[in-house]
């Protein structure tokens, strides 16, 4: 079936099978930053923004995303211009194996977009769906809080 959606700001039309999940469709189209870690919504490695909200793309059928706006980690920044959160994760050594990182960054972006100066508890809550065996969360939390601290109370970038 034909699926039309807005992906990282651009209109796309994809052929997808009815059973195809958004994770698979994204990866099939070369968007490899969206990872498969559990395929049951429990690891956060496949998180993307759907109309600005963080969702597990492994539990969203591609067909369900039709007519909506999807943002993946690739839509946030690139080598020339990484998103402030991407930069902060790098600067705070918050990345070890890196497999959970795109999901965490997506989650943090969803939070900061609605709550530019979140409490530490809110940051921990936003990362709680992102089990990470490498970092122990200390430095990812610091990275998100550091970006929050630069948000002068206005809109998040």
């Amino acid at each position: 079936m034909k699926i039309e959606l807005k992906l990282n700001g651009k209109d796309v039309a994809w052929d997808c099978a009815p059973h195809e999940f958004l994770t698979e469709a994204l990866r099939r189209h070369g968007l490899l930053g969206t990872k498969r870690g559990c395929e049951s919504g429990d690891c956060g490695a496949c998180s993307v923004l759907l109309d600005g909200e963080e969702v597990p793309s492994c539990l969203v059928l591609a067909a369900q995303a039709a007519g909506h706006e999807v943002t993946t980690i690739e839509g946030l920044g690139d080598f020339a211009g990484p998103h402030p959160l991407q930069k902060a994760f790098v600067d705070h050594t918050a990345i070890q194996c890196g497999f959970c990182t795109p999901g965490m960054v997506i989650a943090a972006k969803a939070l900061l977009d609605v709550e530019p100066r979140p409490s530490e508890h809110a940051v921990r809550e936003c990362l709680a769906g992102h089990p990470c065996r490498c970092t122990g969360y200390v430095k990812p939390i610091q990275a998100v809080l550091a970006v929050a601290a630069t948000n002068a109370g206005g809109e998040a970038r």
Binding site: L31, G33, E74, F79, P82, Q86, T93, I95, T101
Partner: peptide
């Protein structure tokens, strides 16, 4: 900065 961090933050495959 770790030598591989940025590409991982960007979600490179």
């Amino acid at each position: 900065e770790r030598v591989d961090a940025l590409k991982l933050a960007l979600g490179k495959g």
